[in-house]
Design a protein around this nucleic acid. Structure first.
Lengths: 225, 225
DNA sequence: CGAGGTGTTGATCCTGGTCAAGTACCGTGG
DNA sequence: CCACGGTACTTGACCAGGATCAACACCTCG
């Protein structure tokens, strides 16, 4: 009995409450109105990795349109208000929403690709800096940045679980960024005096000499068939 | 001038030739018939990370159906034979192919999620073991495994660029796995005497005591609203 | 008020990186 | 036939980026 898409589809979750459980079938997609959520994975011995962050304005797991199932659990990092979009309705009258959802899938896919590069090849400092600018820009896109300031409700533990580090080390890196004057993070307020500069630190840390003859084997790259 | 989908759409690439360049617009998707390819990213200072592997039978970048554009370059790791599937045709008569492509997108998405967990939280040994079983199983699914043996045309450098390690260290880890009798990798032939056991090594290395009270903060996980 | 979740800092350890040399294995051309 | 040059693989010695262990300060919220 699918209900109309009116205000009745509004759902609330408390901090640390699950929006979805591992392997659970999903007949809807959530559109976050307020609060943050995360997709995560726990290894048998307790190691945790967050594989996606969902911010206000995001669809929470657009790919459920295609799979109808949550591969991994989704956890509220803060109190969350969301609108549930029943998939039955979308499938019945495939309109604008389908394209938005597929766009969301694509965006998440590309974001994940970028994170694979980060986790595989970047230093702790680059990863943390990268996360901060990514979040800054995503919040900026939804008008949630003012005077280079925004609210990041993440714990240092959360950050660690995103960037694949220890909370202790995240702390040190944040301290380092603070010393360099690139980041001011007090309480949950993030202030980036020079977002540009932080972006630079995220790509390839300034120290690391940009090796001009980086190509291991110079594949001409221009020998099309 | 799009050609018919007959045998004329067959395309060949040599080793180290690009199937697609970074940012290039794509009016087709490739279906690999023979050979392996990889999506990769190079940082300004030369660090490389492979973010996807394409095996025979795979669609190469199904999401091009949605984006029409290659975000990252695709490189042939071996000589490649592929069938080009023009997207114009797919959009015109959306049939079975669309679902197959969307399924491919979903599969790649999930695979990337798994790799984020690996790169973020697993040890060198677990990552390498994980890669080998993944490839073994993907080849098995297309009937390319016989007597627990299959062909892996990857260089140790390639493997390193997938698992985010140094080729030197990959070598040591492979040696370790060989000593444990879990892997026999001579030339390009991979032999897994006990695929099962290797899978176990990939999840959480046997040494690592499975911490029973792993939950950092015991979130009841059962307090639905 | 106390308790538990956080953030901060120091000392020490260890996984994996770096540097370097040497080997094996080609396919090429003399 | 062998000499060669290039790529891939191995191995050792040493180094360093983060992890681990531990203690403490802070702060919010029962």
């Amino acid at each position: 009995m699918p209900m109309e898409q009116g205000h009745l589809s509004q759902r609330k979750f408390r901090r640390h409450e699950h929006l979805a459980h591992r392997g659970e079938l999903q007949d809807h997609v959530l559109h976050l109105e307020e609060g943050w959520a995360s997709r995560y994975c726990v290894l048998p011995d307790g190691r945790r990795q967050i594989t996606a962050l969902f911010l206000p304005g995001d669809y929470c797991e657009p790919q459920w349109l295609l799979s109808g199932k949550a591969e991994l659990p989704i956890l509220a990092l803060t109190p969350v208000k969301a609108r549930a979009i029943p998939l039955a309705g979308v499938h019945a009258r495939p309109g604008d929403t389908v394209m938005k959802l597929l766009g969301g899938v694509l965006q998440n896919h590309d974001r994940q690709t970028a994170w694979i590069v980060s986790l595989g090849r970047k230093t702790a400092l680059e990863r943390v800096a990268g996360l901060l600018v990514e979040l800054f820009e995503r919040l900026q896109a939804t008008g949630k940045v003012d005077d280079n300031r925004c609210t990041i409700p993440l714990t240092q533990q959360d950050i660690a679980d995103v960037v694949g580090l220890t909370p202790v080390h995240v702390n040190r890196v944040l301290g380092d960024l603070r010393n360099r004057g690139l980041v001011r993070l007090s309480g949950k307020i993030l202030h980036l005096p020079y977002p540009q500069a932080l972006g630079a630190a995220a790509s390839s840390s300034s120290e690391r000499p940009v090796d001009p003859d980086a190509q291991r084997t110079a594949w001409p790259a221009g020998k099309a068939a």
